[in-house]
Design a binder for these strands. Structure first.
Lengths: 141, 141
DNA sequence: GCAACTTACGGCGGTCGTAAGGATG
DNA sequence: CATCCTTACGACCGCCGTAAGTTGC
């Protein structure tokens, strides 16, 4: 089963017509029609009565629409939480390392890290000696 | 957002590796890899740490996995209920109509109906006169 | 007749699988 | 060193959009 067809179906059931759903999905009416037909075939059932003026869900359609509504809701909530969780990474990060390692390995990778977490303040300290970590000179402030 | 990628993601998180997920999805490992990458890009986050021996979910991955688990569960339940609801149609259906209509319009369509509901027993009575419906001669037995 | 859905068809985009490259334990 | 993931590449499948046909009101 292709889950993306469920997304299409949900839009159609929500919009009440293939045409309107196609607009909001940026898809042609025929594309939506084919997706729905394929979904119906994979489920072995009819989701919408044939040829109604405004589409009405069958009993099976209602069942599926309940499911896709929950799915859409869960997905939105999760996406929102994911976005939030990314913003949680901030503050200062103090890093100490040897010059060679810092230059050759670390520096090229810091760009991506900073790109992902703009609120992260990175303090890179390059020295030839290795800091004594138990002394807590390298810590998150 | 392509919902089908969520299905792939769910299989991967469930299996714990791209390779194993590919097996159960009947997809190659590289295909799965690309789907996951595309999903990560569309979400702007990282779902799995790079290059771990057995894949481990990031915090965002856990969030998404919660959602897809619920989605998969809802979908399965709905699909089961849909299958059940189809089996509810059974019994005998007594149909009366004029010969012309029955032959030209109705008969070709009964095949599909019977195909969908094998438990439905159709009793087709062709007559030239129209039955008097209020007399309850056409009823569901 | 109009508005909506279905279906046929040609074209293009996307995804697949294979295979080679790089990383990890 | 074995296993897993990533990436490059060529090919193919499938889906899209257009447009014509059909149905219901």
């Amino acid at each position: 089963m292709d889950w993306d067809k469920l997304r299409i179906f949900h839009a159609v059931a929500d919009a009440g017509s293939l045409t309107h759903a196609g607009d909001s999905l940026h898809l042609s009416q025929s594309a939506v029609s084919r997706q729905i037909r394929a979904l119906e075939e994979s489920l072995g059932t009819t989701l919408f009565p044939r040829h109604a003026r405004g589409l009405i869900l069958t009993e099976q359609g209602e069942l599926l629409f309940d499911a896709t509504s929950t799915m859409a809701k869960k997905l939105d909530a999760a996406a929102a939480r994911i976005r939030d969780s990314e913003e949680e990474v901030f503050g200062e990060l103090k890093v100490t390392t040897t010059t060679g390692f810092g230059t050759l390995w670390l520096a090229p990778r810091l760009g991506k890290l900073y790109e992902r977490y703009p609120d992260l303040n990175i303090d890179l300290m390059l020295e030839e000696r290795v800091l004594d970590l138990p002394m807590r000179q390298a810590r998150r402030t």
